[in-house]
Design a protein around this nucleic acid. Sequence first.
DNA 1: TATCGTTATGTAAGCGGTTACATAAGCACA
DNA 2: TGTGCTTATGTAACCGCTTACATAACGATA
Lengths: 327, 327
Amino acid sequence: MTIYEVAEAAGVSVATVSRALNGGRVAPSTRERVLQVAGRLGFSPSPAARVLATGKSRAIGVVIPDATGPLYGRMLRGIGLELAQAGYTYLVESSERDPGREGQVLRDLSARDVEALVLIGSGLGPQALAAMQGELPALVLVEREGAELAAPMVTIDNESAAERATRYLIEHGHERIAHIAGPRRAGRERLAGWRRALAAHGLPPGPVVDGGFTEAGGYRAAQELIERDGFTAVFVASDRMALGAYRAFREAGLRVGADVSLVGFDGLEFGAYLDPPLTTLRQPAQQLGQAAARAALAVTRGERPENVVLSCELIPRASVMEYGGGP
Amino acid sequence: MTIYEVAEAAGVSVATVSRALNGGRVAPSTRERVLQVAGRLGFSPSPAARVLATGKSRAIGVVIPDATGPLYGRMLRGIGLELAQAGYTYLVESSERDPGREGQVLRDLSARDVEALVLIGSGLGPQALAAMQGELPALVLVEREGAELAAPMVTIDNESAAERATRYLIEHGHERIAHIAGPRRAGRERLAGWRRALAAHGLPPGPVVDGGFTEAGGYRAAQELIERDGFTAVFVASDRMALGAYRAFREAGLRVGADVSLVGFDGLEFGAYLDPPLTTLRQPAQQLGQAAARAALAVTRGERPENVVLSCELIPRASVMEYGGGP
DNA sequence: TATCGTTATGTAAGCGGTTACATAAGCACA
DNA sequence: TGTGCTTATGTAACCGCTTACATAACGATA
């Protein structure tokens, strides 16, 4: 079923059909008739032909660090929803947290003619990206370094969220609050938020240990904290690290939610099923995806969209208890 | 950068370039030269033009029931890995568990020229699918009803896995084993496996209650079981339902792993963090995806691939305890 | 040497849309 | 009634590939 058959059936030329279908100048009566015929014939234009003719693929590429990450599904849903409204689709590829592979993935997606690339999470550094930018379509960065890259960014307000989390602990009577930190921009910002909350309440920063955003790292970090002592609560920069911390505390004979209070970050599902359930900050994953898609659509139109910053929601659960006592 | 520029630079015609690039008949020396020039110029052929010329899009469509489902990410990874090797990509869309929407999604993907469609999990019934088959490309069904559909199927061996799970409980001394069942093919097969294991050991089937594959359903089903009594262990047809069951048992003052043993199904991440950790059967999600992609590639070649049946792995955890005593 | 079969390469016609440009029709106005 | 402007529609080129068919070159064979 091609546009020629529709033209023939409607008794007009292909140009008129094309115009009727794409909102060009056509007499209303003609448009009506063409649309009707096209509908009856079940005509749907060949995307390939359209791409070839217009040079616009109506597709954007999305790169995620890890196909199995629980947040990425939600982000992709947001992206898909938003793009569908504009008649766009997306191609996803995962870098599997390997910067080298990410480079390939980027090239691969560009070779597939995507009009924009949404890069989610960490991967190639800003300088590497800058070096490639010439051969790539417009970028949109989601929760990723690269402010210097002249690409619209969609992020969460890590610092405010971290501050909120820490304040929550303070409001529950904690005065000596440690931090298990993570790397990169997200890690730094969360650390800063923790600092800011403590400073705002005139409290001294408790010990900080890096946990590398992994479960094993969280475990080791918590062990180190336990050794150093001097805290009644910990703000952990990710749920995954909090998982490791639970284990370390349990092994040390400390009860989370009683002997020590914990707040995580991300809002991953398993947090609700830990014992005790983990207080955490939920990332607005789907909204991040939607915002990213909107930005991507904007750049394909040649616009330069504003950066977007979304905030996280605190989910209070039993891992935080009121702290009453002395040292 | 088009094939014409490459042809010009290499001093040959576009036909020769095309042949050199696609493995047609070309003199080895010419091929060498063309490849070199193309490489130097960074030529990468326009997918749209290629699709238009060949009628093959080198893309397959994937429909999942739910973008946030933890298993789908793994399946998509498997699909992506397998397709990439063949130079194919995929487009994903989610039906959001709405059969009507799935119909749209299928049409949408077909309109996007995919060469095959991989349908994962439940959705449109076989008859509805059969009715649409005329307007769709070849289908591949993953863990889905539709044996009558003349489409290759990729499934897990639900029945064997369920039998294995039940046998595991029997080996731990349980003789009165209940079942929380789920709907559809997967539910029926798991029920059958449970039955078979009991029969094989000459044990009477314990009570069976339907839990609809949801957490709330699992909760209610467990409540009903508790009321009926007469079991020391439960084989629950999904981890999600097991979650509800944990809650019901806890509320009834029964300790999972002590007063009652539980085995789930799916191998979702949170199961490891329940208290006690849930014994379950891990679905080979990534392999399912790979097998589906292989099947899809085969059908695009006009082959009729064999059905694939994969098995699940039992993950023993603390939700199952040795049962020693009497009633 | 004329003929034929191979093999390597070139020419040009699509594939199915979009769109610049040409044309025709209709109307207002002098 | 002729002129000019606006509006609706048609014609055909083009997007960048693939590939059927034509052609040329070259040995091998009669």
